[in-house]
């Protein structure tokens, strides 16, 4: 029978528990940790779509901004607690993503990439015109909705929760039957379709999941800064960051985005006093990676060693 060895769960599960414990107990910079965790969640979501189903999206900043705005408007107009408003944000993103899919489903390859980018840009322009959501001035979160004493801890734990639910959820998904389909599509789309895998349905599923994750992450991030405006929330830089992280780390693996995250935030700290140099360096790296190591860093490591930290490979016994 062909299965994934059960024993292979020990390392990743213990590892995740150890990392979570360390993040909670150690005296780290919780603001930075929160950002790292949120971007990790976005990167894993985006990687599920692009790394596995081959739809390279250049427009996921649409969901980051959308999630942020839905949270702010829900909290400010209904008085619902911010924590529950995150769920509302994810749900609205699901609905919007479904509508986007109707528009984009016929576009493939590069057309999908830029089509969704146009959609994201349209949302930015619409929100900048829309008086109810503060137009280009943006909106401030109603201060009565939060407890200042516990607020910083709350957003940190929310980010931690989202990152770990995403990480474990995607790991579980890839070990399931659907995961097998996703990996088959990643390895050979036409081949997968020819043995009866519903490629379009899997692509839609991955698209919806990635949209909800990015919306929740955007909601938590802008909750933590208490203010949202269209040019920040719908900034293409969210998308560029995620793309850089996944491509450099390794597209189509769970380990890749984690390595990419370490490199991205490491570089950002090194170039802390030279933001423009950091961006130029980031661009140069994106130019070089497809030329010198097409599989990203994890691709290189996995090809040399065969390692899997999060095992999803099936073996015959």
């Amino acid at each position: 029978m062909i299965t994934i060895p059960r024993s292979s769960l020990t390392v990743p599960v213990l590892g995740l528990i150890a990392v979570a414990t360390a993040l909670v107990l150690l005296p780290i910079d919780r603001r930075l940790a929160m950002e790292v965790l949120l971007v990790l969640a976005m990167a894993q979501g985006w990687n599920l779509l692009c790394g596995y189903t081959g739809l390279l999206s250049f427009g996921h900043h649409a969901f980051v901004g959308l999630g942020a705005y839905v949270l702010f408007m829900t909290v400010n107009t209904t008085g619902l607690a911010p924590v529950w408003s995150i769920l509302v944000a994810a749900l609205v993103a699901l609905v919007v993503a479904l509508a986007m899919w109707m528009l984009l489903r016929k576009l493939r390859g590069p057309y999908f990439s830029i089509g969704i980018w146009v959609l994201a840009d349209s949302l930015r322009l619409l929100f900048a015109q829309w008086e109810w959501v503060g137009s280009s001035r943006g909106i401030v979160l109603n201060p009565a909705s939060i407890d200042a004493a516990t607020f910083a801890d709350m957003v940190f734990y929310l980010a931690l929760g989202l990152a770990f639910v995403t990480q474990l959820g995607i790991f579980a998904l890839l070990r399931s039957r659907s995961g097998l389909a996703l990996m088959a599509i990643r390895d050979n789309e036409a081949g997968a379709a020819s043995i009866g895998i519903a490629v379009a349905r899997n692509q839609l599923g991955a698209f919806l999941i990635s949209a909800a994750i990015c919306a929740a992450a955007g909601a938590i991030y802008y909750l933590s800064v208490l203010y949202v405006d269209p040019s920040g929330a719908f900034d293409i830089d969210w998308q560029i960051r995620v793309l850089f992280i996944v491509i450099v780390g390794g597209l189509g693996s769970i380990e890749g985005p984690i390595i990419g995250i370490a490199i991205y935030f490491g570089l950002r700290e090194v170039f802390r006093d030279a933001g423009d140099l950091f961006l130029i360096f980031q661009g140069l790296t994106a130019v070089l990676v497809p030329l010198v190591m097409p599989g990203g860093i994890w691709g290189l490591i996995a090809a040399r060693t065969g390692w899997q930290i999060f095992p999803t490979r099936r073996l015959a016994d």
Binding site: L279, I280, G283, V287
Partner: peptide
């Protein structure tokens, strides 16, 4: 160097180039 059926590498390269040029 990245010709072929997969459009992703060329898109990533030119995206990186766009960041470099912009900045």
């Amino acid at each position: 160097r990245v010709l072929g059926p997969n459009p992703v590498p060329a898109m990533v390269i030119t995206m990186g180039l766009s960041i470099v040029l912009r900045n």
